[in-house]
Amino acid sequence: MTEPSGGSSDTPRRPVVVPAIALTAFTAVGITALLGGLREAPEEPEALGPGAVIDQGQFTTKVVESRVTVERAQNRFEEDKRFVDVVFDVKNNGDETVPVGVPPQKIESAFTLASFAGSLVKIDPVFPKDAGPYVFARSKGDESRQLHPGITSQVVLRYRLKDTEQPPQKISLDVAAFEWEPDFNNVTPRWKMVATEVGDKWLPDIKARVTLSVKEGDAA
Rank of each mutant, 00 (worst) to 15 (best):
A28C: 07
H148K: 10
E179M: 03
E96R: 12
Y159K: 02
N93E: 12
T211E: 13
E71G: 01
P182Y: 04
V214N: 02
E96A: 15
V156I: 10
H148M: 13
P12R: 03
P19N: 07
G51E: 01
E79P: 00
R158G: 01
S9R: 14
T188R: 13
A41G: 05
V155E: 00
G37V: 06
I171V: 15
A219W: 10
L48W: 11
V64L: 07
P149Q: 05
V121R: 04
Q166K: 12
A131W: 03
R76P: 00
A195D: 09
I206P: 00
T164R: 14
V16D: 11
L157F: 01
T112G: 09
A25E: 10
I31F: 15
V126M: 15
L157I: 01
L212H: 06
D200K: 08
V175R: 00
A114T: 15
A47Q: 14
K81D: 03
R76C: 00
E78F: 06
T196Q: 15
N93S: 15
D218P: 02
A131P: 03
R145P: 00
D142A: 12
R190V: 13
P189T: 07
E197Q: 08
R72H: 08
V98L: 14
L34R: 13
E216Q: 13
V53L: 07
L161N: 00
I54E: 01
L34A: 11
V210Q: 03
D163F: 11
F77Y: 06
E96V: 12
K201D: 11
P45F: 06
D205C: 09
R72D: 08
Y134M: 10
W180V: 02
P19Q: 10
E44K: 14
S139D: 09
T24M: 09
F136D: 01
N186C: 05
Y159D: 01
T211H: 09
